[in-house]
Write a protein that binds this DNA or RNA. Structure first.
Lengths: 341, 341
DNA sequence: AATGGTCTTGTAATCGTTTACGATTTTGTT
DNA sequence: AACAAAATCGTAAACGATTACAAGACCATT
C-alpha cells in the first residue's frame, strides 16, 4: 500500500502538490499534474481513508442504525441505501439496537467518534433524550420509518394512518364486526399512527372501539403467534385481525394454521407485511407493503444534502404513500401465472 | 468532544502519561493515575477512534461482506456477529456484493484501506483471483458459508453434502422416484456439495441420476418460482423437488400454490430453507436449517484469533452439522401448540 | 558514597493526509 | 518598463492518538 509521499517522490514534487492534484485544485500546471497522475497509476496509489478522515474530520461512511436487523424491512432499506451510496463513494456501517435506547445511545456515540458523515436512524422506543445533543450538531441524523415527536430531525416515514384505515375499512367492508388489533411496540410513532387509522376506520364503519380487542404483541414472530393464539381462544373471539407489523404477521398466520382456523371465512387477517412473505399466505391476505427501497434512497439523499450543507436544516418530514395489496389483487396476480413474481 | 490533550492539561500531566493511564501501562503512580481518571470523567473523554486507527494501523471494525444482504441467512449471520462483536469493542461494517466478484474486489480493497481488523466473507461465485493477495497478509479473512477450493483461507461451513443426502433420502423413502434438483448458483462450494449429496442419495436408493432432472435456478424468489413452474409443466414431471436455497424455496412453494399442485401427494418438496419461513408452509416440508447464528459466532471467534495473532495461520476449516427438520417433526411441534415457536 | 536497578514521567517522532501561508514565477495591463 | 494580479508549488503545521527514547527520582546493595 503506497502513500502520497511515495507518489510525490516518484513525480518529483512535494506531497502538497500531489495532494492538490488528487483533490482537483485548479492551479497546477498540466505537466506536473500528468507526472503525478502517472506516479499514482504506476504505484496503484489509493488514499488512506483513515488519515483523510483524521485530517478532514469526516469519513466517507454512512451509519445505518436499525432497531431489528433481522426484520426484512430494514434489510431492504439497508440494501437500498447501500446501492445508492456506493456510486457516491460512501460505505455503510449497519448497527443493530434490538429496540434498546441504551444500545442506540452507545452506537450513536461510537459512530460519532468514528466520524461517519451522517446517520440514518430507525429510533428505538422510549427515552430519546440522548438524541438531543445531536440536534443542529455536526453529525446529521435522518430518521427513517419512525418519527420522534418533540425532536426536530428530518425524517422519512410512510402514511401509516391512511394505510391502516384502508386495511381496516377493507375488513369492515367484508362484513367483519369484531376487528381486533394486534399492536406493535408502544411508544413509537408507527404504532400510534396505525392505531389511529384503525380507530378511525372503525368509527367510519360505525363499529365500536373496544379496548379488549386491542392487544399488544412483542414485535417478533412469537409475539404475533401468542397474541393471535390467545385472541382466538376467547369465547367471544374476533372475526378479523389487523396486524401492525410484518414479523408479527407471520406469527399470526402460523398460529391460525396451528389452530386449524381458516381465513377469510372464520377470521380474516390484514395488516402490515413483507411483500415476499405475503406471497406465501394462502388464501392471500390484504397487506400493506412499505416502500422500503424508496425510503432508503430518499433517506440517503436527504442525509447527504445535510452532509454537504445544502439544506438550511429545517428538518423536513417526508411522508410517502404505502402500497396496499388486497386479496383480490393477489388473486388476480395468481391467475396471471408466473408474471406475478 | 474533548481530546487527550485537554485531559492531560486538566490533570497537569503530559499527553503521554494520560495515554499510558488509559492504556493500562503499569508504571504510573497512583496519584497521577487518579488525577488523569478524574479528568477523564470530568471531561467525559472518549478516545478518537480514527486517530487511534491511524497510529495503530488497525481499527476496531470488522467487515462482513455478504453476497446477498436480503437473504435472511446472512441477516442472521450479521446479527450473530454483531452481538458477539459488540461486547469485545468491535463494530461491524456490512457490505453487499450481489454475487458479483468485481463488487467483492472493490469492497475488500475499500475495507483494507479503511483498516478494518479483519473480514468475514461469503465469497461470490466465479473468479477469486483477486483474493490471492490477501493470503497470509495483514488483513485476515475468514470465509463463511462457502469455501474456495484452491485458496487456503480459514472457513466456517456446514456439512451440506450430508444434509442434502438426508433430505433426498427422505424423499426416496417416501417412495418418490423422480426427484428433481433445483440447483443454486454454479461455481460455489455449497452448490457442489449439495449436488454431491443429492446424487449420492439417489444412488443409495437405487434411483438413476438423470441430467434432465437437474435444473439451475437463479438464487432468488423468481428463480425458484420459474424453475418449479417449468418442471411441473413437463409431461414427464417429477414427483419430488429438492431445492438448494432458502430463497428459491419460497419461490417453489409459491409456484406450487399458483399451479394448484398439492404436496406431499402430487409432488413432495424438501431442501434448504429458512427456519421462520418454513413454519408457514402447509402442509409442512422437510427442510435443512443452517445454524446461521452459530456460524456467525464461530467465524468471529476465528477471525479475532487471527487478528490477535494467536493462530499459526494454518487455515482451519470448520464444518458444522446442519439441522434437519422433517415433516413429521413439524407436525409434532404443531400438535404441541404454541410451545413450538 | 558509589553503583545499579526499578519507577515515573516528559519530549518528540510518527501514522498519512489536508491546507494555511508564503515564496517564486508567469501573465496581463498601462 | 513598471507594476499588479494570477498561477504554481513548497514548507510546515495541523488532525489525535501511540510509543521509542531518555532523563530524573527513588531505593537497595556494596
Amino acid at each position: 500500500m503506497s502513500t502520497i509521499k511515495e507518489v510525490a517522490e516518484l513525480a518529483g514534487v512535494s506531497v502538497a502538490t500531489a495532494s492538490r492534484v488528487l483533490s482537483g485544485y485548479p492551479y497546477i500546471s498540466a505537466a506536473t499534474r500528468q507526472r503525478v497522475l502517472d506516479a499514482v497509476k504506476q504505484l496503484d496509489y489509493q488514499p488512506d481513508q483513515v488519515a483523510r478522515s483524521l485530517r478532514r474530520r469526516r469519513a466517507n461512511l454512512i451509519g445505518l442504525v436499525v432497531s431489528t436487523i433481522e426484520n426484512v424491512f430494514f434489510t431492504e432499506v439497508a440494501h437500498a441505501v447501500e446501492q445508492a451510496a456506493r456510486p457516491l463513494g460512501y460505505n455503510l456501517i449497519v448497527c443493530n439496537t434490538d429496540e434498546d435506547p441504551q444500545n442506540e445511545a452507545a452506537y450513536l456515540s461510537i459512530l460519532d467518534r468514528q466520524l461517519v458523515a451522517g446517520v440514518i436512524l430507525a429510533p428505538a422506543p422510549g427515552d430519546a433524550r440522548h438524541l438531543e445533543r445531536f440536534i443542529g450538531e455536526k453529525l446529521p441524523i435522518v430518521l427513517i420509518n419512525r418519527r420522534l415527536n418533540h425532536l426536530p430531525f428530518p425524517s422519512i416515514t410512510c402514511d401509516d394512518e391512511t394505510a391502516a384505515f384502508a386495511c381496516v375499512s377493507y375488513l369492515a367492508a367484508e362484513g367483519k364486526q369484531r376487528i381486533a388489533a394486534i399492536k406493535g411496540l408502544p411508544g413509537v410513532s408507527t404504532t400510534e399512527e396505525r392505531l389511529a387509522g384503525y380507530r378511525r376506520a372503525l368509527q367510519a364503519a360505525g363499529l365500536p372501539c373496544q379496548a379488549d380487542l386491542e392487544v399488544e404483541g412483542r414485535a417478533n414472530l412469537e409475539g404475533g403467534y401468542r397474541a393471535a393464539y390467545a385472541l382466538m381462544q376467547r369465547q367471544d373471539r374476533p372475526d378479523a385481525l389487523f396486524v401492525f407489523n410484518n414479523v408479527m404477521m407471520q406469527g399470526v398466520v402460523i398460529a391460525l394454521q396451528d389452530l386449524g382456523i381458516s381465513w377469510p371465512e372464520s377470521v380474516d387477517v390484514a395488516g402490515f407485511g413483507a411483500f415476499a412473505a405475503a406471497r406465501l399466505y394462502r388464501p392471500p391476505l390484504t397487506v400493506v407493503a412499505q416502500p422500503a427501497h424508496e425510503m432508503g434512497r430518499r433517506a440517503l439523499a436527504m442525509l447527504l444534502s445535510c452532509v454537504e450543507g445544502k439544506t438550511a436544516g429545517d428538518a423536513e418530514a417526508v411522508v410517502l404513500p404505502n402500497r396496499i395489496i388486497t386479496r383480490e389483487e393477489w388473486q388476480h396476480s395468481v391467475r396471471c401465472g408466473s408474471g406475478a413474481i
